[in-house]
């Protein structure tokens, strides 16, 4: 049975890490979560990013956040990646399955997955 006591244990584990977590993330993954994104399947995409970024120990460098409608609803689920000093990369028609490659090649490897980007999708 899950209990609030377990949260106490999480708190104690976290307190030693808090200093490391603050202010160092230089990459931001933003998932569109308006009606259009949600209906197209943004929820599993967001959760895949949250889970995999954590599983790979990348939370100090990468934050995963939500936003509203980005304005290109026909391409949802849409994910934007912001990185200090670089141009924004927009991924379209994302799925939870595509997340692993974005993390591996783009967020860790520094090379955007061009075939998933908006600029590579015919209008």
């Amino acid at each position: 049975m899950k209990s609030l006591a377990e949260l106490q244990a999480i708190k104690e584990r976290m307190q030693s890490k808090v200093v490391l977590r603050e202010g160092t993330a230089d990459k931001r993954v933003v998932v569109g979560m308006a009606t259009c994104g949600i209906a197209a399947g943004a929820r599993p995409v967001l959760n895949a990013f949250v889970e995999q970024v954590n599983a790979q120990g990348l939370t100090a460098n990468i934050t995963v956040t939500q936003t509203g409608c980005i304005g290109i609803c026909q391409y949802e689920p849409v994910v934007e990646v912001f990185e200090a000093g670089k141009e924004k990369v927009t991924y379209v028609k994302m799925t939870a399955e595509k997340v692993a490659r974005v993390i591996e090649e783009h967020l860790k490897g520094g090379k955007p997955v061009v075939e998933y980007t908006l600029s590579n999708n015919k209008i």
């Binding site: 899950k2 609030l4 377990e6 949260l7 106490q8 999480i10 708190k11 584990r13 976290m14 307190q15 808090v18 949250v50 889970e51 954590n54 939370t59």
Partner: peptide, 20 residues
């Protein structure tokens, strides 16, 4: 609100908290 009372300043979006 109950979780926050236990967690203090540990943010709710901490992965371990979300897993819980």
């Amino acid at each position: 609100r109950e979780m926050r009372e236990v967690l203090g300043d540990v943010p709710l979006d901490t992965f371990e908290v979300l897993s819980w």
